[in-house]
């Protein structure tokens, strides 16, 4: 049995999760300038709802729809009700406001669903294929394929469509874009919507493949942010690739016993090293955004 191959495939399947998580974060940050710490909590709320519906023996497709719907509604609610109040503030203040939202969501979830071990099982879990000797379930493949699809699709969307153009304009310079007639509110709402749908799907995947635990899912956003940093918070393909790479590295570290307990820190360490390397030789002279 080729051990390296096993860990490689295992790493890719985890990396696919990191990568998928990063896409929605980057998209939202590009279009609205908000780094969403509540991304994980929104997905968790969707996943918990899906679990509840499955417990009540509702059909699985309905649970999927509910999961995505809840995350979408939460994302739109924050984007529509809270984000405008902070539109003129620094990016960091916008980011920490989302942390407040994440805490409120986490508290609500733990009130509704008392903390207890739970497991979410989807139909796709039953299917599997063997890759390099490792069995990979349908859910993992789905996460990877949707991740690739969304990365490509978002690339096309940003490059080819009018709304995509407006989003890019907003990301480059918000004031100039609004003077040029970009309907800021509408474009932002679309971004919150897409990001909410992705948060819901990601939440469902994480809940199935990682653990159905609101706190764990809420705070997984922090390692996912690591992947987006490597994409400089703007590049979806770079975030996606970084997610895969981090997953593989994290998995391979399990082979080296002395470092194995530290391997969960991989996203953070890779992000710091990558960021320092990308910024090498740069000096800040004039006050600017980064």
């Amino acid at each position: 049995m080729n051990v390296l191959g096993l860990f490689l495939v295992s790493g890719l399947s985890v990396g696919a999760l990191y990568a998928l998580g990063g896409v929605g974060l980057v998209l939202l940050n590009r279009a609205t300038g908000v780094l969403n710490f509540a991304y994980g909590a929104m997905g968790a709320a969707g996943a918990m709802t899906a679990w509840q519906l499955l417990e009540w023996n509702w059909p699985e497709p309905l649970a999927w729809v509910a999961c995505v719907g809840i995350a979408l509604a939460l994302s739109l609610a924050f984007g529509g009700l809270i984000a405008p109040g902070l539109a003129r503030r620094e990016p960091i203040v916008k980011a920490i406001a989302t942390l407040g939202f994440a805490l409120a969501l986490l508290g609500t979830m733990n009130l509704l669903w008392v903390v207890t071990p739970r497991k979410l099982t989807l139909t796709f879990d039953g299917l599997s294929v063997a890759i390099l000797g490792l069995r990979v379930t349908g859910t993992r493949l789905l996460a990877l394929l949707v991740g690739i699809g969304v990365t490509l699709g978002m690339g096309l969307f940003l490059a080819r469509t009018r709304v995509g153009l407006m989003m890019r304009a907003l990301a480059d310079n918000r004031q100039v874009a609004s003077i040029l007639g970009v309907p800021v509110g509408r474009v932002e709402t679309i971004a919150w919507g897409i990001s909410g749908v992705l948060a819901g799907f990601t939440g469902l995947m994480f809940a199935t493949l990682v653990r159905l635990d609101p706190a764990v899912l809420t705070f997984l956003v922090i390692p996912i942010i690591a992947t987006t940093i490597i994409g400089r918070l703007t590049s979806i393909p770079a975030s996606f690739a970084a997610g895969l790479a981090i997953g593989v590295l994290e998995s391979l570290l399990a082979l080296y016993k002395p470092l194995a307990p530290f391997r969960v820190a991989t996203p953070f360490i890779v992000a710091i090293i990558a960021m320092m390397w990308l910024q090498r030789g740069r000096r800040l002279t004039f006050a600017g955004q980064d």
């Binding site: 051990v3 860990f7 295992s10 790493g11 994480f206 994290e250 391997r263 969960v264």
Partner: peptide
């Protein structure tokens, strides 16, 4: 997050 590697 990653249980696969632990299983391996």
């Amino acid at each position: 997050a990653d249980m696969n590697a632990s299983v391996l």
